[in-house]
């Protein structure tokens, strides 16, 4: 058996593995530039990022949740509900800052509820958040009466459609959240505890980490990020939609998984998730630019998710 040659091949693959998401992303960019001249324009790129921001921000929370070996199916409904809250508060005549505050707190509380049920109540995350998903959607329908709530205060438009030094505000918000959470995961007790809890909950508990508190924190943050996305969404449409964010949880989970975070917890991070979300956004964008029918777009998106995860498990077997 000649193994020396296959060895350098393995080395290449190992490097590929480390930057796997980046490489897929770059490849996609190259393909995009061939498909359409319109792709590499500042307007288009900002457009892609703005579209990604809603899922991207939620996916940050989802990354934390998945790192603790959990899952949050309620994010889409929570976004709809907090959207209805922000629109409702404004319709009631409150100023924008109050509306924003109430919205964030609402998201935080729903998230905390998830966390408490999961940790103190010992309910599996899948079940707990599935229930909250349904409940939150119900409350949204109650609050909106089943039809869109229109927002009249024009200055609210800034959140979703404004720019800051030429950069769309949603992109700035997303960037700031990613940076902060990247730092938090790396440099704080809370961040490192998330990895420990997801890697081996029992060992973490024995090391004196307050596992319940870590979980409650993580779900609370995720709820709050859903509220942030809700504001971008409602500002874009200048209304709250009762059916906003349906299936959004799946997009967020897909971004996290494509980004290389392990579904069983303990491994991964937000940088991968950012790239994962961008990959999905760019994919949507080029399929649009190439005039592919929306039906085929869905198929292509599913195929990319599958390919990314398959590649992952193949590479994991290399170092046998």
């Amino acid at each position: 058996m000649d193994k020396t040659q296959s060895n350098s091949w393995v080395n290449v693959l190992l490097i590929v593995d480390k930057f796997r998401v980046f490489i897929i992303f770059l490849l996609l960019l190259v393909i995009a530039s061939f498909i359409s001249d319109a792709f590499f324009t500042v307007t288009n790129l900002f457009n892609v990022m703005r579209q990604v921001s809603i899922v991207g921000i939620i996916a940050v929370g989802m990354t934390l949740v998945i790192l603790t070996a959990g899952i949050d199916l309620s994010v889409g409904s929570v976004m709809a509900l907090t959207g209805a809250v922000v629109a409702g508060v404004m319709t009631a005549g409150m100023p924008i800052p109050i509306a924003i505050l109430v919205c964030l707190i609402a998201g935080l509380i729903i998230g905390a509820f998830n966390g408490v049920v999961i940790s103190k109540g010992n309910v599996p995350p899948f079940i707990a958040t599935l229930a909250v998903m349904v409940i939150a959607r119900g409350f949204t329908l109650v609050l909106t009466g089943g039809s869109p709530t229109i927002i009249n205060d024009a200055s609210y438009r800034v959140i979703g459609s404004g720019t800051l030094l030429g950069v769309p505000v949603p992109v700035v918000i997303m960037g700031v959240i990613f940076l902060i959470m990247y730092w938090v995961l790396k440099n704080t007790t809370f961040g490192r505890s998330i990895y420990a809890v997801g890697g081996n909950e029992e060992a973490a508990r024995l090391a004196g980490i307050n596992v319940d508190r870590v979980k409650i924190f993580v779900y609370s943050l995720t709820g709050m990020f859903a509220a942030v996305s809700a504001m971008i969404y409602t500002s874009r449409l200048m209304s709250a939609q009762p059916n906003a964010g349906t299936m959004l949880e799946l997009d967020a989970i897909a971004a996290v998984i494509i980004g290389g975070t392990r579904l069983t917890g303990g491994k991964g991070g937000v940088i991968g998730t950012l790239i994962g979300a961008l990959i999905m956004g760019v994919l949507d964008n080029i399929l649009n630019l190439a005039n592919v029918s929306p039906f085929y777009q869905e198929i292509a998106k599913g195929a990319v998710i599958l390919a990314a995860v398959l590649l992952d498990s193949k590479l994991a077997k290399l170092n046998r």
């Binding site: 990895y195 420990a196 890697g199 060992a203 973490a204 024995l206 090391a207 303990g266 491994k267």
Partner: peptide, 15 residues
């Protein structure tokens, strides 16, 4: 109970 196998030696020691 003792180790988080996917974390580094350093992180396990510091846990």
């Amino acid at each position: 109970e003792g180790l988080v196998l996917d974390l580094s030696v350093a992180e396990n020691i510091l846990l």
